[in-house]
Amino acid sequence: MSSFNLTINDALNSDLFKSARVLAGEKGLDKNIKWTHIIETDDFDDLLNGGELVLTTGTGLSLESSLNTYERLIDKHVAGICIEIGHHFTKLPAEIKQFADEHHFPVIAFEEVVKFVDITQHLHTHIIDQHHQMLHEISELTQAFTELSLSPNGILKILQKLNNQFQSYALFMTDEAKAYYYPPEGKAFNESLASYVQNHRNANVFENIITIDDKKFALSPVNVVGQIWDIYVFRLLKHLQTNFYLLC
């Protein structure tokens, strides 16, 4: 299955980041980048949704003196920040470096002048291309599921297809509390998942992601006339993007 993640490490491997140096937060370089955002103002809280790689020259920000700036960025779940060294930023104080390291928050410095427009265009193009590829794969899966659902033992064949696609456990919970699972080892999760489904079915409300015994599962209810009849369940693996499961 294709990978739909763009990490900070991936960005650093681009030629556009050849003058970049990681100042702090190296343990957070595997964070996914959802988008980029250029910030040159201290009033940025309402401009961020989370997952952004922030680009800045430091204008309007107190990046050498204000720990609170980094606290706010982390509170907004920003992926990391890239700062161009120049008039507004020359070095990262030890206190801020320690804080960023503790929170696995990447702080990256450009040691040469760079064109932020080139970086945003490059990363956004990559993200959009990934999104289009994801939609294409989902369309192909949907067609395959439709064909399999009309064949004998269709449910089991769909679960086998899901397992082959995601290399993960797949289960199907019916309204009669009957469960199908593939591979057979998925039976180990059946009782806990069945209990969750039974407790929430009457409310007709399910969380998209649940955690059972420190293992994450994605739930995809089958809705018929506004009512949840059956539920597909996938074991979430760390290297697969959650949004791909939810779109399925």
Rank of each mutant, 00 (worst) to 15 (best):
I96K: 01
A79D: 01
V114L: 02
T120E: 03
N68M: 12
I74A: 10
I85N: 01
G86L: 00
K115R: 06
K97W: 02
E102L: 13
L92S: 08
L123G: 12
C82K: 08
E111S: 08
L67P: 05
F110M: 06
A109N: 05
I108Y: 03
T125K: 07
L73N: 08
E84G: 00
E102A: 15
V107D: 07
L92Q: 13
T69E: 07
P106C: 05
D75A: 15
L73T: 11
V78H: 04
E112C: 04
A100L: 07
E111D: 11
T69K: 07
K76V: 13
P93Y: 07
I128Q: 06
T125V: 09
H104C: 10
H103I: 04
H87Q: 02
H124G: 02
H103A: 08
A94P: 01
H122N: 14
V107I: 14
I81F: 03
I127C: 00
M134H: 02
T120Q: 07
F105M: 06
V113F: 03
G80Y: 03
R72W: 09
L135N: 09
G86V: 02
I96E: 02
K91L: 14
Q133V: 09
H126R: 14
E71G: 08
D118A: 11
V107R: 10
G80F: 01
R72V: 15
E84D: 02
V113S: 07
V78D: 03
F105G: 11
P93Q: 10
M134S: 07
I119C: 01
L135G: 06
E95Q: 13
V114W: 02
